[in-house]
């Protein structure tokens, strides 16, 4: 009787899984195409291109700037996953050795993202590419694990198991980190004079769309868990209202076409970054609201609101900003 009630959250998760799966199938083709372009890059076009796009102020191409921003977004998500899966899987006593996987993978993803953020070169990096693909795959496999974990419990996909079983949406964060990182490599290696594209779609708009979906999914996860907390604090409504609006704005941006600046959407994304970071503060307050407060950290960090979860929003909003930046700087993207 409660099975039917589990559908909303499940549908969100399933939708995300389907999207991620189809995206990953396209990866190989896209990668191969990107390599082909890279070999034939016309070097003399660089100065012309930079002057056209950046007005000659910087010598870093717009694609690299956008890629670095995407690396930063992927890194923020990876950091969130590293901390979140660390805490949650510690709570699960690492009963299954596979529970170490997201820690290792997200740590590596974080590492290559930092590397990418500092890297001004125009070429994709094989380590980064591989790691990001690995992260995406980990997200997919993790999602399967979590679905299996919930399904096998009495009641199946009931509210009880959605609330307290392995969180279905959580592994999506590492998948998103991987996809964003992978996209950053495609953008970075796009030659002068060619519109950066991902999966044959203009990169800026594709990233905006991906981020939009990511924001919706993450808001769904926050919504489920804040519902579990009966929205006892009105601020708990923020992550279920602001991000979906941001997602809608980004989706509209993606649909609207190139060549616009979207100042309001950019402002909204910055708001989400702030919300994501402030969320850590709210959750820290939430931990202190549990019995024994921070002195009882060994219980409350695990049973209280998850400290590392809100930065997922910041990571996605950073990806949104990168996408918007790319669209601004590269009118065809």
């Amino acid at each position: 009787m409660r099975r039917s009630n589990g559908v909303t959250a499940t549908q969100i998760a399933l939708g995300l899984a389907a999207l991620a799966a189809s995206s990953s199938l396209l990866d190989k083709r896209s990668l191969a195409r990107a390599r082909k372009y890279r070999t034939g890059e016309p070097k003399q076009a660089k100065a012309v291109y930079d002057n056209r796009i950046l007005g000659g102020k910087l010598d870093v191409p717009a694609t690299v700037t956008a890629a670095k921003r995407l690396n930063r977004a992927a890194g923020m998500l990876a950091l969130s996953v590293l901390a979140d899966s660390g805490v949650e899987h510690y709570r699960g006593s690492f009963k299954n050795k596979a529970m170490f996987t997201p820690l290792i993978v997200s740590a590596a993803t974080l590492g290559v993202s930092v590397h990418g953020t500092a890297d001004r070169r125009k070429a994709a990096h094989i380590m980064r590419d591989t790691t990001y693909l690995l992260a995406a795959t980990t997200g997919l496999i993790g999602t399967c694990f979590h679905f299996y974990n919930v399904a096998k419990k009495a009641g199946g996909f009931s509210w009880q198991n959605l609330f307290y079983g392995a969180p279905l949406g959580a592994p999506m964060a590492i998948l998103l980190s991987g996809l964003i990182g992978f996209c950053s490599e495609r953008v970075r290696e796009t030659p002068r004079g060619i519109t950066p594209s991902i999966f044959d779609l203009p990169a800026g708009r594709a990233m905006a769309a991906l981020t939009s979906v990511g924001l919706l999914g993450t808001a769904g996860e926050a919504g489920l868990l804040h519902f579990r907390g009966a929205f006892h604090n009105p601020f708990m409504l923020l992550p279920v209202t602001l991000p979906p609006l941001g997602a809608a704005l980004l989706a509209r941006t993606a649909a609207a076409g190139p060549g616009r600046r979207h100042p309001f959407v950019r402002w909204w994304m910055r708001l989400l970054v702030t919300m994501g970071l402030a969320g850590v503060g709210f959750h820290a307050y939430g931990v202190s609201r549990n019995m024994g407060g921070w002195r009882n950290w060994s219980q409350n960090v695990l049973n209280g609101p998850p400290l590392p979860a809100p930065p997922s929003f910041a990571g996605l909003a950073l990806a949104g900003l990168a996408a918007l930046g790319l669209m601004r700087d590269h009118p065809d993207a």
Partner: peptide, 21 residues
Amino acid sequence: GPITYPWGPHRPRYPYRAHEL
């Protein structure tokens, strides 16, 4: 309490969510 109660006539949703089993 649970989101929906399996027995008896309709009752409003419990104010707080059920605890972990």
